[in-house]
């Protein structure tokens, strides 16, 4: 049983399907690690207290705040960012719908929105618009007014559920 605290911690995790080993500072949060050490700048470090959602990434199958999880806690985790989701292609329809529906303008919130929306879409079925809004309530967008984002998510939910486009 070790009784040691360290200020640098060794971690081994999988990021976007690739194994990664690193030594991280004790206070570094996951999204800084992804951006500064791995060059994955899709998820954004913005408010850094969990309010804006721009840092949302997928950890062990669930959407989480990248700014509220320490990199040290990600030892053994399976992490996906928007870069990995794009490369794997599974979110291509959602990304296309965002473009079609003008669900992004500056794009700052979009990587977090995509991860948060996929978290909801993964449950299957076609969520009500109120449910989509509730699920995305923790992701700020200062451009679109949200209506187009809800449209895009709803459209993809319908298509994936085999019910055609709205």
């Amino acid at each position: 049983m070790t009784l040691a605290f360290s200020d640098r911690i060794d971690v081994a995790l999988v990021v976007n399907g690739e194994p990664v080993e690193a030594r991280v500072p004790a206070g570094q949060h996951l999204v800084d690690f992804l951006r500064l050490e791995l060059g994955l700048t899709g998820a954004h470090a913005s408010c850094e207290h969990g309010v804006c959602g721009a840092c949302t990434v997928r950890v062990d199958g669930q959407a989480v705040r990248g700014c509220l999880m320490l990199a040290a806690q990600a030892d053994g985790a399976d992490v996906w960012t928007v870069e990995g989701l794009t490369e794997a292609g599974g979110s291509a329809d959602l990304q296309a719908a965002f473009v079609d529906r003008n669900a992004l303008q500056c794009g700052f919130c979009t990587p977090g929105m995509i991860v948060a929306a996929e978290d909801l879409l993964a449950r299957g079925g076609v969520p009500a618009r109120a449910e989509i809004r509730a699920h995305l309530s923790g992701n700020y967008c200062r451009c679109t007014g949200y209506e187009a984002i809800v449209d895009a998510v709803e459209q993809v939910a319908r298509t994936r559920a085999g019910k055609g486009t709205a």
């Binding site: 200020d7 500072p25 570094q28």
Partner: peptide, 24 residues
């Protein structure tokens, strides 16, 4: 702003966590 932690340790069980707390 960025966090500054003094240190980090992972507890295996409750007695271990209590020992770490006592140490810190």
């Amino acid at each position: 702003m960025k966090a500054s932690a003094g240190g980090y340790a992972r507890a295996n069980d409750v007695p271990h966590a209590l020992q770490l707390l006592a140490l810190a």
